[in-house]
């Protein structure tokens, strides 16, 4: 078994604390409300779909929920030292990381990918592949972001800040302005999958699917492995 049920249970209860749950709920609710408002007030065009589902859902909601879930599954435990109770057990550190990744990805899928699919249904209806395409893009982005932000939670005590800078500045700003930077964008990788499913009228991806697929797998696996490797060397700060 690659997963530890006790670690999963403790992690889930920790990450779904009252304040964090409130944060996790706000963004998807906002997404669905915006989608409903747009659908009710305007004629939904392909560009509107791209703006709401690519720009806001996969481009903003997924990474922000990913930051909260990914860093929240391990960062607070490392900060306050309670991780010692998990690590002082005969449980492989890689198994602990895989379990926490599963929890982070599940939370991100629930609070970001599912609402993206619902927003797609609201905007484009059940006809066509728009909801499925963006929903699947949100799924792969959720997994990749979870692994990246979980790694940040292990390697830095400022994981939330670094994660937000990455999500908003790199993904949001640089990749929007600089054509070449899009090759290194989780958003663009996941959109390439959506483009393949729904066509380039409603999805505009900058990276070819084979390249995007390889990069998604490589980054997710590398981030997970490195997080496990760093956790093996977890050090308690001394009195000095």
């Amino acid at each position: 078994m690659y997963i530890n049920a006790t670690v999963a249970r403790l992690t889930l209860r920790g990450v779904l604390g009252r304040r964090r749950t409130a944060l996790l709920v706000i963004l998807p609710v906002l997404l669905v409300v915006i989608a409903a408002a747009v659908q009710a007030m305007t004629d939904v065009e392909d560009r509107t779909i791209r703006d709401v589902l690519a720009g806001f859902a996969v481009g903003t909601v997924v990474p922000l929920v990913g930051v909260i879930a990914g860093t929240g599954t391990i960062g607070p435990e490392i900060d306050d030292g309670s991780i010692v109770y998990l690590l002082s057990k005969p449980v492989s550190r890689f198994k602990i990381i895989l379990t926490k990744l599963l929890v982070a990805a599940s939370v991100t899928l629930t609070f970001a990918a599912v609402p993206t699919f619902i927003a797609g249904l609201v905007l484009a209806g059940a006809d066509g592949q728009v909801a499925v395409a963006y929903g699947l893009a949100a799924v792969v982005a959720s997994i990749a972001y979870s692994s990246i932000f979980l790694l940040l939670g292990v390697v830095t005590r400022h994981a939330v800040v670094v994660g937000l800078v990455y999500a908003l500045v790199w993904e949001g700003l640089f990749c929007g302005l600089i054509e070449g930077a899009r090759t290194l964008s989780v958003l663009q990788w996941s959109l390439s999958l959506a483009e393949r499913i729904a066509g380039d009228d409603v999805v505009d991806a900058s990276v070819a699917l084979p390249v995007a697929g390889v990069l998604l797998v490589v980054v997710t696996c590398a981030a997970t492995w490195f997080a496990g490797h760093r956790l093996r060397s977890f050090t308690l700060a001394g009195e000095n």
Partner: peptide, 28 residues
């Protein structure tokens, strides 16, 4: 090895019993 660290932080959202049971489960 059994370790009693100096820092007080624990899983505060658990009850004492849940916490010790979780530790027992982690030991298999």
């Amino acid at each position: 090895i059994g370790l009693v660290p100096e820092r007080e932080s624990m899983y505060d959202f658990l009850t004492g019993a849940e916490f010790v049971v979780a530790n027992a489960e982690l030991h298999g």
